[in-house]
Write a protein that binds this DNA or RNA. Structure first.
Length: 639
RNA sequence: GCCGGAGUAGCUCAGCCGGUUAGAGCACGCGUCUCAUAAGCGCGGGGUCGGCAGUUCGAGUCUGCCCUCCGGCACCA
């Protein structure tokens, strides 16, 4: 046996300003499947997860709730860990970016290394700064030199900033992509990144001045490391970078970073550049997975349609959900979750096929042979098993989880077939065919055993239970893909007949049935609070009023902008640019009365100035719906 | 607007470098066994392979144009 290979994989660390939902759970579950597969395949595996805490949003969220930021993060860690536990995730390590012992020294070490190698320089961000807004203003946004919101003259200030020389790494990155074709996967993401980098890279700010929530820049204690720079380093920090060389040497480089497709650019461009700068080896692969939609709609933290992953996991255990996510969604692409489909797959794959198979084998073995079977040669079924195992490995080696799962289920089907062909119940009636009877049952049981081993990364608890019933109650860590998927031609099994693993979901019985109409219970107590409370005075700062649309036309070259001329009861019609071109034809809007924000700072977009904003309901990923103010007359105050 | 991806049976999808009657799973219908969770097994449905035009002896499979959908970029205060 060759020396043990290591496999270090990570998932994105999560912001803790809201609890995990199906979208984040999807990433962790699929990563967990991969981690478990690698362990099964004999790799010395290290699976890292964690939380990203140095975000201003997290800081704000904590303050809103009147909590100390760190205490808030502590609480959220428990919320996250609780969800992950219920999904049966087998992470080996969990890192937080507020970790003082591991993360802080790593971040500081890498910042220092980048500085030492000449890739960090002091620059300044300068511009008009409005004290009232606590923000820099673009010159184009100023009205007669004043901040349009506060009507005061902004100051010209320079904020010291540290920049990372990303531009220097354009060619090295392109070269790396070329030499390592699978560095970015799937190919769609790779193409995107290639084009992005080919288009040129700009240096980026890697520090923020005047903030306290973050890790201080080692060579400039008055600044903190910018959150993205901070966050990426978690992968190296967790395994010793900057604080334990031996540990780092053991695990680095990471073999696989699993991230959402929205942040592949950070992981495929900035992160490798940082590592090159710090003279650290690059990870083997970044895999950008897709989204899981819910009934075709994008999952989002702010949406009400959150399917708490625990809904499915709590009702049926984590495995049916895990199987659904791994098997029904080609890994790398987007997928959809609906309760109908979940139910359908649950009944077909688990109740009817696998569960029922386990049941009938156990039942017949018990009835005909007192629960015992003696292994035989196998024959046709053994050959099918071998094919399934091979297909499964091929798929799983390249993270084609859906194909891997399908391969395992082909073996399950073959076993069901085999029973129909051999008809053990008929053989049982003829004492002279006892040998054939045993052979049929033993072969079927052996096929089930192998299928369970294949499925163990996807459905760990269920597979363990099946294997236990088949007389293998070893710990999962003691199983190995090679040895345990080989057809056994000798030995006896004592099979337990202990009832259904997955009772069918019968919609019309209404007992365990679920449906899309299942009302969402209010979020659990740990749910984050509502947005910050404001006073009536705060609200009144916004001057909302009714305006009638006089003209509407598309803004050239813009995908979502419409240019509107509206009568807001003022002397002159005003021009407003609204991002609703995807939902409305210009003509359809003329004559409509809508609600606008009248005192919003003017702003230029696509070369044209907008004076105000049209209020619209804006579903995540959906079509905007402008608020209908008819029949109120233009100029009427809205409050 | 620019750049990518996709459009194959009701649903979810396979279909390398072009080649016999276009496939799988699920759902559905019929038949059938009875060990089993009214599960299993067998059979079936005849889908213009988004549209048009080309290349070719021959095209879901190549080329061009068009339509639709989805992503990325600009833009969405």
């Amino acid at each position: 046996m060759a020396r043990t290979m290591k496999f270090f994989l990570t998932t994105a660390i999560d912001f803790v300003n809201s609890r995990p939902h199906l979208g984040t759970a999807y990433e962790k579950i699929t990563a967990d499947v991969i981690a478990r597969y690698r362990r099964l395949a004999g790799f010395d595996t290290h699976f890292l997860m964690g939380n990203d805490e140095h975000s201003q949003n997290v800081f704000r969220k904590a303050i809103e709730q009147g909590k100390d930021p760190l205490a808030y993060c502590d609480e959220m860690e428990q919320v996250f860990r609780d969800v992950w536990r219920r999904l049966d995730l087998s992470f080996d390590d969990f890192i937080r970016t507020t970790d003082q012992k591991r993360h802080k020294p790593a971040v500081q070490a890498m910042a220092q290394a980048c500085l030492d190698n000449g890739d960090v320089y002091e620059g300044s961000y300068e511009g008009f700064y409005c004290v009232g807004c606590e923000a820099f203003k673009q010159e184009k946004d100023l009205v007669e030199g004043n901040c349009p919101i506060h009507n005061t003259k902004p100051q010209w200030i320079r904020e010291k900033n540290w920049f990372f020389r990303l531009s220097k790494y354009q060619q090295p990155l392109l070269k790396h992509y070329e030499q390592h074709p699978t560095f970015i996967q799937p190919d769609i993401r790779r193409n995107e990144i290639l084009r992005l980098v080919e288009g040129g890279l700009e240096d980026i700010s890697m520090s923020r001045a005047g903030q306290s929530w973050g890790i201080s820049v080692p060579f400039d204690p008055s600044s903190v490391v910018y959150v993205w720079f901070d966050a990426l380093i978690n992968y190296a920090a967790a395994v010793g970078y900057g604080w334990d060389d031996a540990l780092f040497k053991k695990w680095w480089p990471a073999n696989l970073h699993i991230v959402g497709k929205d942040i592949t650019r950070f992981h495929c461009v900035i992160w490798p550049a940082m590592l090159m700068s710090a003279k650290v080896e690059l990870p083997g692969q970044v895999f950008g997975h897709g989204w899981v939609y819910f009934k075709g709609e994008r999952m989002s933290k702010t949406m009400g349609n959150i399917v708490d992953p625990l809904d499915a996991a709590d009702r049926f255990g984590p495995d049916p959900l895990r199987l659904y996510l791994a098997k029904e969604i080609p890994y790398g692409g987007d997928g959809d979750f609906t309760w109908e489909r979940f139910e359908e797959k649950y009944n077909a794959d688990l109740a009817n096929n696998l569960g029922n198979l386990v049941n009938r084998v156990a039942s017949m073995t018990e009835r005909y042979q007192g629960g015992r079977v003696a292994a035989t040669g196998g024959g046709a079924l053994a050959a099918i098993a071998a094919h399934s195992v091979a297909a499964y490995r091929t798929a799983m080696d390249v993270h084609a989880l859906h194909d891997g799962a399908a391969a395992a289920f082909r073996l399950v089907s073959a076993a069901n077939n085999y029973i129909a062909e051999t008809q053990p119940w008929a053989l049982a009636k003829d004492p002279s065919k006892a040998g054939q009877l045993n052979g049929a049952l033993a072969d079927t049981a052996e096929a089930v055993r192998i299928a369970a081993v294949l499925l163990s990364p996807i459905m760990p608890a269920s597979s363990a239970e099946i294997l236990r019933r088949l007389g293998d109650d070893r710990a999962q860590r003691d199983r190995r893909l090679d040895a345990d998927t080989a057809w056994r031609t000798s030995g006896e099994k004592q099979i337990l007949n202990t009832g259904a693993l997955w009772p069918r979901i019968e919609a019309d019985k209404g007992v365990v049935s679920v449906s899309d109409e299942t009302p969402k219970a209010p979020e659990a107590p740990a749910a984050p609070a509502a947005p910050a409370v404001i006073t009536i005075d705060d609200f009144m700062k916004a001057h909302l009023k009714v305006a009638r649309i006089l003209e509407a036309e598309k803004v050239p070259k813009s995908q979502r902008l419409l240019k509107l001329k509206v009568d807001a009861g003022e002397a002159e019609p005003r021009t407003i640019l609204a991002g609703i071109a995807e939902s409305y034809e210009p003509e359809a809007l003329i004559g409509k009365s809508v609600v606008i924000v009248a005192n919003l700072a003017p702003r230029k977009m696509m070369g044209q100035e907008s004076n105000g904003m049209v209020l619209a309901a804006s579903p995540e990923g959906g079509a905007a719906i402008v608020l209908n103010a008819e029949p109120a007359t233009p100029g009427t105050r809205v409050r």
